[in-house]
């Protein structure tokens, strides 16, 4: 609790809480980052889970996953700043807790998928062949990330402010 209090007292946390633009600007970064990460991850997972659309080689995953990583870093940073501004309340908030668990789980599932796919030997122009367990992982990935988005939205409805 002491550490949470320290974060809460930082000047940047104060700026997020008290200024007119601090909070909305950070939410803007967080929204764009969300669209990049969840967008890319879901596109790849749809292809892996369903096999549609045909015509994707395993090598295509790499540049897209790098892009998703950039979005993830952006959201980790903007999320961290938003968290610090309300650290005690968010730590106690159940939707926030669920969101964080879903993101960790979602990230592990993406990493798992990528390890299988990028390791797949590839003939130029050949279709990525995907096993059933990997397809199931991809379907779970979609569920996880969509649920994380929904949990994130509900923080606004369930957050009870804890004042220090």
């Amino acid at each position: 609790m002491k550490f949470l209090g320290w974060m809460y007292e930082l000047p940047i946390s104060y700026w997020i809480r008290e200024s007119t633009w601090g909070h909305p600007i950070m939410l803007c970064f967080h929204a764009i980052g969300m669209a990049v990460v969840v967008g890319i991850v879901v596109m790849l997972a749809i292809r892996v889970a369903t096999g549609w659309p045909k015509g994707l080689t395993a090598g295509s995953f790499e540049p897209l996953l790098r892009l998703a990583q950039i979005g993830f870093v952006m959201n980790f940073l903007s999320g961290l700043i938003l968290f610090m501004a309300n650290a005690p309340s968010l730590t106690l908030n159940w939707t926030f807790q669920i969101k964080i668990v879903l993101i960790i789980l979602g990230a592990v599932l993406v990493w798992w998928q990528s390890r299988v796919l990028i390791g797949t030997p590839e003939k130029p122009g050949s279709e990525a062949v995907i096993s059933v367990p990997t397809r199931i992982i991809a379907a779970l990935t979609i569920v996880c990330w969509i649920a994380a988005v929904v949990a994130g939205r509900y923080i606004a409805y369930t957050l009870q402010k804890v004042f220090l």
């Binding site: 929204a31 969300m34 991850v41 659309p53 015509g55 994707l56 540049p63 897209l64 892009l67």
Partner: peptide, 29 residues
């Protein structure tokens, strides 16, 4: 929000390739 992710995600894949990056991705795909 889910709609935003689907719309932006699909466009990101298409537009990144159309910008000439990530050329391992096939354009028809």
């Amino acid at each position: 929000f889910i709609g935003v992710c689907l719309l932006f995600g699909a466009l990101l894949v298409i537009d990144i390739r159309m910008l000439g990056y990530a050329r391992k991705i096939s354009i028809p795909w």
